[in-house]
């Protein structure tokens, strides 16, 4: 199964569960009114939550992306060293 198919299956499963519960009364399934009031906008809430989670995660990871100052410095000194040694070995840059 492709990743796309897995996603479609997952969404279809969630979607149909939600539909069955909100359509409950027509199917003869009685849920308390408060329950139905929460259930109705649930997908919208879910979408917003997921979106916030995604933005939060990416934001946090951007903020904590490690800046390798040391590695850059070390590379610079090694480049000098390499150049000197290569010239000694007869390389014409």
């Amino acid at each position: 199964m492709t990743k796309l198919a897995q996603w479609l299956w997952g969404l279809a499963l969630l979607g149909s569960t939600w539909a069955a519960l909100t359509m409950g009364p027509t199917l003869g399934l009685e849920l308390p009114l408060t329950c139905r009031e929460v259930l109705w906008p649930l997908p919208a809430y879910l979408l917003v939550t997921v979106g916030c989670f995604a933005l939060g995660t990416v934001g946090y990871r951007v903020a904590t992306f490690h800046d390798c100052e040391d590695a850059a410095l070390e590379l610079q000194t090694q480049i000098q060293e390499a150049r000197a040694d290569l010239v000694r070995k007869g390389l014409l840059f």
């Binding site: 990871r61 992306f65 490690h66 800046d67 390798c68 100052e69 590695a71 850059a72």
Partner: peptide, 10 residues
């Protein structure tokens, strides 16, 4: 993206 990994110059 993990542990001590990182980037420079971005």
């Amino acid at each position: 993206y993990k542990g001590n990994g990182g980037v420079y110059g971005w």
